[in-house]
Design a protein around this nucleic acid. Structure first.
Length: 290
DNA sequence: CATTTCACCTGGTGGC
DNA sequence: TGCCACCAGGTGAAAT
């Protein structure tokens, strides 16, 4: 589910609800995979921490943490600690994989199947990680021992035209595959790769290094426009994506090609075609995209 | 190195 | 209704 707009929406939702709150209890499911760091160590680090801020880095959600054990909880401003907790000393990093959800609930809310982490907060809220396919990843980082998390590639919303063009120079792989490579751009996935290529009028199989500067400029602008529009609409809910409040997004209603195989192109009525590129279902309009 | 393929998982859908 | 093939927002390891 989660590409840049969905991750951004989720991170904002968690930030708004849990900033300044304190983790009072930690629970992890006993599943072997989805944890990069042993759950016992994660639980120990998370316990008692205040959440200073939550933000997006590529497709990752980063929670900035500081130990707040023993600190009296300030209930003046809506169960939140006052701001001055200091610099973050740890991070909890969440990657949603394909089907991951990060939800803010109350601690009494019924626990959904495939819930793998529950962080009970001082406010009575609970942060839950739910992930049926278990492709998601949870990581705890002690900032006294290792550097803060950085997405591997550049952010598509802030990349300059120069930088963007340089990413693809000399590359033979399909532009669609290049867009999906997180070491180049961090945050673009299958939906927004297909949609931005449609809006830029570029065929997904074109070798990345052969695109003209004009095409690359068009592609970058289309990408920014599509991503920003999708963020405004709360992301795309194709089957099961929901934000931190459990609400669906609306950008799926604006998809022009993604998952529209055989349906008429919204611009020229030609049936949308589906091919495989880099092993991923890829949708395009054979008339509008060259 | 750059690039491609595949395994990792569960669940939904549509054909027979 | 059941069974089966195929598809799905992602990524990294292995193969080429």
């Amino acid at each position: 589910m989660p590409e840049l707009p969905e991750v951004e929406t989720t991170a904002r939702g968690v930030h708004e609800r849990l900033r300044g709150d304190r983790i009072v209890d930690v629970w992890f499911s006993r599943h072997p995979q989805p944890f990069k760091v042993p759950v016992a160590r994660q639980a120990k680090g998370l316990q008692g921490c205040a959440i200073l801020a939550v933000h997006r880095a590529g497709k990752h959600i980063v929670c900035e943490l500081a130990p707040a054990a023993g600190r009296p909880l300030d209930t003046v401003c809506g169960n939140r600690l006052v701001e001055s907790v200091g610099e973050p000393s740890a991070q909890w990093i969440v990657h949603l994989g394909m089907t991951g959800r990060l939800l803010v609930t109350t601690s009494e809310a019924p626990v959904a199947p495939h819930t793998h982490a529950r962080l009970a907060m001082a406010s009575g809220r609970e942060l839950r990680f739910v992930d049926p396919r278990r492709f998601g990843r949870l990581e705890y980082r002690d900032l006294r021992r290792c550097p803060g998390f950085r997405a591997p590639g550049v952010d598509p919303l802030s990349v300059t035209a120069e930088e963007f063009a340089r990413l693809f120079r000399g590359r033979k792989l399909a532009i669609k595959a290049a867009l999906l490579n997180q070491k180049l751009l961090s945050g673009v996935g299958n939906i927004y790769a297909d949609e931005s290529l449609f809006h830029a009028g570029i065929r997904p199989r074109r070798p990345a290094g052969r695109l003209t500067r004009e095409e690359l400029d068009r592609l970058r602008k289309a990408l920014v426009k599509v991503l920003k529009h999708a963020i405004r609409l709360g992301g795309s809910s194709v089957s099961d994506y929901v934000d931190a409040d459990g609400e669906r997004g609306f950008f799926q209603l604006e998809h022009c090609v993604y998952l529209r195989t055989g349906l008429p192109c919204r611009r020229c009525q030609t049936p949308v075609r589906r091919i495989l590129v880099a092993g991923r279902g890829t949708h395009y309009c054979p008339r509008c995209q060259r």
